[in-house]
């Protein structure tokens, strides 16, 4: 579904992504983890072209998304993206946040978009907040709305960039629960996260990144029981100590 071929990215002299060649299959839940500054966020942001790449190819469903002249908007409409800082639109209600893109992009009539948005808000447990503005919601609630907003475009792929890192600890669970439900419905997901419990339970595979490289790719069982790379071992040891 997503194929990366020798992807390289630089920030000036800094080599942020080094020769990444990998693939993500349909219905797969992939967790990307690693120390901060390892290139995880950069990597996931290249998948919907929020970041440009300097060399290599990224294909989503067979389309080269970094090709010159590629229709970035159409491509992004098919890839849900959830940000660390939610980025809800503060001037719109929860419901309007979820209907803006489908209506403006002509994917649905106003009525259809509202009905589907309400269904999604129901799923994330926030139908009763449909008329509220984002600043009246807790962080966990905002992130659940952000997930519903992304799902409103009916994307076959969802990307999560540290979706729980900006949350108070007691709100992490409610967001992970929504993500678990999505995974169980067969959504193709790429999640950059530090939540090792989620990775262990939900991920089909884990990529461990450090210094712009994928140092280890493994099933959660292998990764947690028997990490191969010394850095991965170190990373897991640090996590356990927390």
């Amino acid at each position: 579904m997503i194929v990366l071929d020798k992807v390289n990215k630089y920030y000036g002299d800094y080599h942020a992504l080094v020769d990444i060649s990998e693939r993500v299959d349909q219905n797969e839940v992939l967790v990307v983890c690693g120390p901060s500054g390892s290139g995880k966020s950069t990597l996931i942001r290249t998948l919907n072209r929020l970041e440009e790449i300097d060399a290599g190819r990224i294909e989503v469903d067979g389309r080269d998304i970094h090709a010159k002249g590629a229709d970035v908007n159409a491509l992004r409409a098919g890839i849900g993206f959830v940000f660390q800082h939610f980025n809800l639109f503060p001037h719109l209600t929860v419901l309007e946040n979820c209907t803006l893109a489908p209506v403006r992009l002509g994917r649905a009539s106003k009525g259809e978009a509202r009905a589907y948005a309400m269904q999604l808000l129901e799923q994330v447990g926030l139908a009763h907040k449909a008329g509220a503005y984002p600043d009246a919601l807790s962080g966990g609630q905002q992130q659940r709305v952000a997930i519903a907003r992304a799902l409103a475009m009916r994307p076959p792929i969802m990307l999560f960039d540290e979706p729980t890192s900006a949350l108070d600890p007691e709100m992490v669970g409610e967001v992970l629960q929504v993500m678990r439900a999505l995974a169980s419905q067969g959504m193709t997901m790429v999640c950059v996260t530090h939540e090792m419990g989620f990775a262990r339970d939900v991920a089909d595979r884990i990529w461990f990144m450090s210094e712009g490289k994928i140092l280890e790719k493994a099933t959660p069982q292998d990764f947690f029981a028997n990490p191969q790379h010394p850095r991965a071992r170190q990373f897991l040891a640090d996590r356990r100590r927390d």
Binding site: N73, G78, F81, F83, M153
Partner: peptide
């Protein structure tokens, strides 16, 4: 905040 523009773009808005 840059995230406002980014999240709008990530939904497919031009």
């Amino acid at each position: 905040p840059k995230g406002q523009f980014e999240s709008a773009r990530s939904l497919g808005l031009g």
